[in-house]
């Protein structure tokens, strides 16, 4: 188990200073949402273009603030999923956000969905 403080030291990424840095980030294998980004376990059919998550992390969604996926080398690969990036982890991996803190994912396959809002006749993505 790892704290927000340790994640910040390990990745060099910063969080808003009012967040509790001693908070232990739970590593869960269910559906989790971080603000405007939902991450859910999935069986990915047909994806072949798997790339390693780079040492500096992978921006899963960029907006006003980025959601950055960080993983130890060799433990996580990613590909394009049905509605955003998808990833496969063989060890716990973390999703970091300056305002929302961190979200921990147990080993498994996950897809991401960006949150959306209704706009007259169609939907548009949420700004976060």
């Amino acid at each position: 188990m790892i704290t927000l403080d340790a994640l910040s030291a390990r990745t060099g990424r910063t969080f808003d200073d009012h967040l509790d840095r001693s908070l232990t980030i739970p590593v869960l294998d269910g559906i989790q949402a971080q603000g405007d980004l939902l991450v859910m376990p999935a069986v990915l059919l047909g994806a072949s273009d798997w790339r390693p998550v780079p040492p500096e992390g992978l921006v899963l969604l960029d907006g006003v603030h980025p959601h950055v996926l960080v993983a130890d080398p060799g433990t996580c690969r990613w590909t394009d999923g049905p509605d955003g990036p998808a990833f496969a982890a063989t060890a716990p991996v973390y999703l970091l956000h300056p305002e929302h803190g961190a979200t921990g994912f147990a080993p498994g396959h996950y897809v991401t969905h960006r949150q959306r809002e209704w706009r007259e006749t169609d939907w548009s993505p949420v700004f976060d």
Partner: peptide, 18 residues
């Protein structure tokens, strides 16, 4: 559930939202 593009039964399985 609609805001994340998933069904309500799936959304009910959400374990953590920050």
């Amino acid at each position: 559930a609609w805001t994340y593009g998933i069904t309500a039964p799936l959304y009910k399985q959400l374990v953590r939202r920050t």
